[in-house]
């Protein structure tokens, strides 16, 4: 589903070349719930952005669904984002002018998935059936993140990318969010979660650990996959 080979990302900051990613090789298949773990500056968000077609690598190939997007055109990248990947952001990034329902409907509309479940059912699925007409500022942080997840799910795209989805949430709410995300890793789709929180990595099927732009670890969590109820942070 996701196949990266020799992916590097270099930035030029004045005279200095920053190697955000350096020779990344990885593959993610359907049904996987993958956590990309790393400290600040390790390159995990850059990796997520490249997978999500928000950014392009300096070197290497990025195959999504068997197609190489490393040197795709701008419009192809836009199309990939509409049809294949969906995002959940740390700071939710809901549209302040739209209600919860309209925010989710946005996901349906841009992906053109009009035959799928309605926006309302996605909101109900994340437990917000009674808050559909609320604007983002009328919702709590956890509720906003659940709306963001519902929006991403509403696209029905096979790859769900979440960047520090629990970063702004308390433990209890964060756990609820993680539970939602884990549930999305089905046989047709994969979920990639970027975090610096090792505790969260415990619930993943697979943990890819980054350091200085390189993969320093790739496998199941240490001590095996733990249930959500065991998480503490």
């Amino acid at each position: 589903m996701i196949d990266l080979a020799g992916v590097s990302k270099h930035y030029q900051v004045g005279p200095v070349t920053v190697h955000a990613l350096d020779g990344i090789d990885m593959r993610v298949d359907e049904g996987e719930f993958v956590v990309i773990l790393g400290a600040s500056g390790s390159g995990k968000t850059t990796l997520l952005n490249i997978i999500g077609a928000l950014d392009q690598p300096t070197f290497g190939t990025v195959k999504i669904g068997g197609r190489d997007f490393a040197s795709a055109s701008r419009s192809e990248l836009f199309a990939l984002r509409r049809d294949t990947v969906s995002f959940v952001f740390q700071s939710f990034n809901l549209f302040a002018g739209l209600t919860a329902l309209e925010n989710v409907q946005f996901g349906v509309d841009v992906a053109g998935k009009t035959n799928g479940d309605g926006a309302r059912s996605h909101l109900e699925a994340v437990g917000l059936g009674d808050r559909i007409d609320h604007f983002p500022h009328e919702l709590s942080g956890g509720e906003q993140q659940r709306v963001a997840i519902a929006r991403a799910l509403a696209t029905e795209n096979p790859i769900l990318l979440a960047d520090e989805p629990t970063g702004e949430l308390d433990f209890r709410t964060g756990a609820q969010i993680m539970e939602l995300l884990i549930g999305q890793a089905t046989e047709k789709s994969a979920v990639l979660v970027v975090t610096h929180n090792r505790e969260i990595a415990r619930v993943a099927d697979r943990v890819i650990e980054l350091s200085s732009g390189r993969i320093v670890g790739d496998g199941p969590p240490q001590g095996g996959k733990a249930p959500i109820s065991e998480l503490r942070w």
């Binding site: 509409r82 049809d83 969906s86 952001f89 990034n93 549209f95 302040a96 992906a111």
Partner: peptide
């Protein structure tokens, strides 16, 4: 800006 970036992230041109 963030709204627009989010729209771009969802593939809105």
């Amino acid at each position: 800006a963030r709204d627009h970036a989010t729209m771009f992230a969802f593939g809105v041109s």
